[in-house]
C-alpha cells in the first residue's frame, strides 16, 4: 500500500492544486495502478484541497474509473446483440454465482474480476466470454462451470 501511495504522491507532484486536475490525476493513477484505491483518493483530495468524498463522487460517476483492483482472472462477458440473444444474461448469472461477485466487482481474495463488455468481436461464436486474453465461444452454463472448476460454487455442486 505504501508503495502505491508514494506513486500517487509522485503523480500529484506533477499537478498544481487546482480542482481541474482531478480527472487527469485520476486517469494517471488508474494507468499506473490499474485502479484507484481509496487511499489514493484521500491523498488526491488532500493535495487538491477538496473533500475525499468529492473525489469518490467523481471517480464513481465515470465508468472509466475502476475502484477495485483487478482480479488475477479477469472475466468479461460479451453483451453484444448476438451474445445477448443467445443467452449471455444466463452466462453472466452463472458466473456471478460461481465467483460470488456481481458485475463490475472484484472478489475479496483478488481472484476474479467480473465485467461485461460491449462486443468482443466473435459474434459467430456467441455467446462468448473472455478470461484475461483468452476467448471462449459457444458458452453454456456447463462449459462455464468447467472453465472454473476450482470455484467455491463448483465445489459445492460437486460435493
Amino acid at each position: 500500500m505504501s508503495g502505491e501511495l508514494s506513486l500517487v504522491r509522485e503523480i500529484l507532484a506533477g499537478y498544481g492544486k487546482s480542482r481541474g486536475a482531478l480527472i487527469p490525476v485520476l486517469q494517471e493513477v488508474q494507468a499506473a495502478l490499474g485502479y484507484v484505491p481509496e487511499g489514493a483518493m484521500v491523498e488526491i483530495a488532500r493535495h487538491l484541497g477538496i473533500p475525499a468524498s468529492h473525489v469518490y463522487s467523481v471517480a464513481s460517476f465515470y465508468a472509466q474509473f475502476r475502484l477495485q483492483p483487478l482480479g488475477r482472472r479477469r472475466i468479461a462477458v460479451c453483451r453484444g446483440t448476438a451474445c445477448h440473444v443467445r443467452g449471455a444474461p444466463e452466462i453472466l448469472k452463472e458466473l456471478e454465482g460461481l465467483t460470488g461477485i456481481r458485475e463490475g466487482e472484484t472478489s475479496e481474495d483478488l481472484e476474479y474480476t467480473l465485467e461485461t463488455v460491449a462486443c468482443i468481436g466473435c459474434c459467430a461464436l456467441a455467446p462468448c466470454v473472455r478470461v484475461n486474453d483468452e476467448v471462449y465461444g459457444e458458452m453454456t452454463r456447463e462449459k462455464v462451470r468447467a472453465l472454473f472448476p476450482d470455484s467455491e460454487e463448483a465445489h459445492r455442486d460437486a460435493g
Binding site: 473533500p51 468524498s53 468529492h54 469518490y56 463522487s57 464513481s60 460517476f61
Partner: peptide, 10 residues
Amino acid sequence: GVGALNFAGR
C-alpha cells in the same frame, strides 16, 4: 466544511 457526504455512482 467536513465534506463527509457526496453523491456516488450515477
